[in-house]
């Protein structure tokens, strides 16, 4: 098991990529805090599924944009499991990925940007601020931020979403620079279009096909593909990797 007895927190873990990451981490031996904002039932389902294979997990409600709620959640998690080793910032403000109804650059207003920045960057910021003292105390920790390969290749220009994810990458790198000396690594995972998830259902078949055409590995990412990369970055295997962004998109983006 790659992360045996480690304590992990995955935000936005009630479904999609977040749920897959939570489950994978649990399978690899971690105690997983499954964070959700609204979907308690879905989060409980994830926890229960983890328990079916004798994994350890617990659901935690918190709006990642709210510092008090985040602080309370992290403290509770650290208290019940004795620390916090792995944080996966996966949550974001609600977003509809629909190529047909998306807002163009001239339709996107600052509030749209702000909303995405709040979910992706402020959310990650809140979580990291709360988790950092625990990780410094342990002189180790893994912070993993989920970005998107749209920041390198905006196949569909979801302006507000992509801008926020790019900001999250900048956040990742500068955080890595300051936390390395404490033994804490900070990395990003950049998924390509991941199917099936709730976010990608509205992406039309032709867009999916065109992405597949451009992808060397000739398929879309699955939630498990992303979860595997996250587990790697959370494990001992990545002990000397920090400030990196790992593209998980079958080679669509190469850099």
């Amino acid at each position: 098991m790659m992360v045996k007895n480690k304590v992990a927190l995955v935000t936005g873990a009630s479904r999609g990529i977040g749920a897959a990451i939570a489950k994978k981490l649990a399978r690899e031996g971690a105690f997983v805090g499954v964070n959700f904002f609204k979907n308690q039932q879905l989060a409980e389902n994830v926890v229960n599924e983890i328990k079916t294979f004798s994994g350890q997990a617990e659901a935690f409600q918190a709006d990642v944009r709210n510092p008090e709620q985040v602080q309370a959640m992290v403290a509770q998690l650290a208290d019940s499991f004795g620390g916090i080793d792995i944080v996966v910032n996966n949550a974001l403000s609600h977003y509809t990925f629909n190529p047909k109804t998306r807002k163009t650059a001239w339709e996107t207003n600052w509030d749209d940007y702000q909303q995405q920045l709040d979910g992706s960057v402020k959310g990650a910021y809140n979580i990291c601020q709360s988790a950092m003292p625990f990780m410094k105390e342990q002189m180790s920790g893994r912070l993993i931020n989920i970005v998107s390969n749209l920041i390198d290749f905006p196949v569909i220009p979801y302006h507000d979403y992509t801008t926020a994810k790019m900001a999250l990458l900048g956040f990742t790198r500068s955080l890595a620079a300051d936390l390395g000396s404490f033994g804490i690594t900070v990395n990003a995972v950049s998924p390509g279009l991941t199917y099936p998830t709730d976010s990608s259902v509205e992406t039309t078949e032709d867009v999916r096909e065109s992405i597949i055409q451009l992808t060397p590995m000739r398929r879309l990412a699955t939630p498990d593909d992303i979860a595997n990369a996250v587990v790697f970055l959370a494990s001992e295997g990545s002990s000397f990797i920090t400030g990196q962004c790992l593209n998980i998109d079958g080679g669509l983006v190469m850099r």
Partner: peptide, 10 residues
């Protein structure tokens, strides 16, 4: 035990 990360779970 908690400081040693040893609990009934582990």
């Amino acid at each position: 035990c908690q400081t040693k990360r040893k609990t009934p779970l582990t």
